[in-house]
Write a protein that binds this DNA or RNA. Sequence first.
DNA 1: CCTACCGATCGGTAGG
DNA 2: CCTACCGATCGGTAGG
Lengths: 199, 199
Amino acid sequence: MSPRNSVLETRHTRRRILDRSLAIASAEGLEGLTIGRLATDLGMSKAGVLGHFGTKETLQLAVVDAAAELFNEEVPQRVRDVPLGLPRLRALCEAWVSHLERGVLPGGCFFTAAATEFDGREGPVRDAIAGLNTLWQRDLRLHVQRAIAAGDLPGDTDPDQFIYDIVGIMLALNHFQQLQHDPLATSRARRALTRLLPA
Amino acid sequence: MSPRNSVLETRHTRRRILDRSLAIASAEGLEGLTIGRLATDLGMSKAGVLGHFGTKETLQLAVVDAAAELFNEEVPQRVRDVPLGLPRLRALCEAWVSHLERGVLPGGCFFTAAATEFDGREGPVRDAIAGLNTLWQRDLRLHVQRAIAAGDLPGDTDPDQFIYDIVGIMLALNHFQQLQHDPLATSRARRALTRLLPA
DNA sequence: CCTACCGATCGGTAGG
DNA sequence: CCTACCGATCGGTAGG
């Protein structure tokens, strides 16, 4: 990578590249993220950037990973002390809304952008995005099932239908926020979630 | 354009370009739609393609227009005989689901793809997408308001919240269909809509 | 980490 | 509608 830099500095540079990549990719997509643009933004050479990842696809995979890590810190980690089942499910959704409300990434939800961009393609990047999506939905389903078992949700609740509804609410939030700049988007999301998740 | 072709042939070529563009753009995005790719697919030269539009941006705007026209034929036009208010709203949503179910475009909903791709940018293409979105939602709102006035929806219904919910259901349909290839996506959408729109 | 390249492709133009 | 170009940028490599 760099014959002059220490391991620590190398790691720090990699982090800088990934942070900038997340910001760019959330707004312009994982293809709009070009090595040249990244190099200019960071005041580096293209070869310097690419040296950390080898190929653009490896960079894209690293960015997807970094996005998953960020989401994990922003949502599940923040509510890990909340009791399992319905309370946890409610807390997860609220943390999710709050994450989008705070505009952590300039282009809104990274995974919505990446999923829409790559759902019509093939390859490891698409697979990584779809896989993380599946994992997250499996996690949500677990809490829905627990809530049903505890009697906090009606016994005839269809867990997958329930997750479908939650995902729809979150996709709509991102949509109204990013495309229409609608300041009421988050309160609409919260209202829809309150209706879905009884107190 | 073409000194050898008649006006009719020219119009036909333009139509061919737009049809192919819609297919490409729904799957690969409006940026992934390149002049060279389009020319190869259609067995034309790049200059031949570009001659119909002048610039790529003009082509993109024409594609957005063509997508709006297609959606109009596929959804509102098909249910224009259904009584206004709740019946019409239900028919519109069903035609919308059916449009996505039939996979009219290979990449799913053009506007979901285009909106996600351009919501972080500026310029006439973004404005066109956002404008059409606003128009369509205004149309939906009209029917919601009529349904409320007719007593077919509760008097305390918030029209914008209602539209938010519908949009979420449709976005989730496209999401589960395109990313997860979930064959149950359409039936989930219909179930969610049935719950929202009383019979 | 850099400079200095490479072939391929981008959007677009000139001229017929 | 075509051929034949243009400069700019793409991802990527060689070599230090």
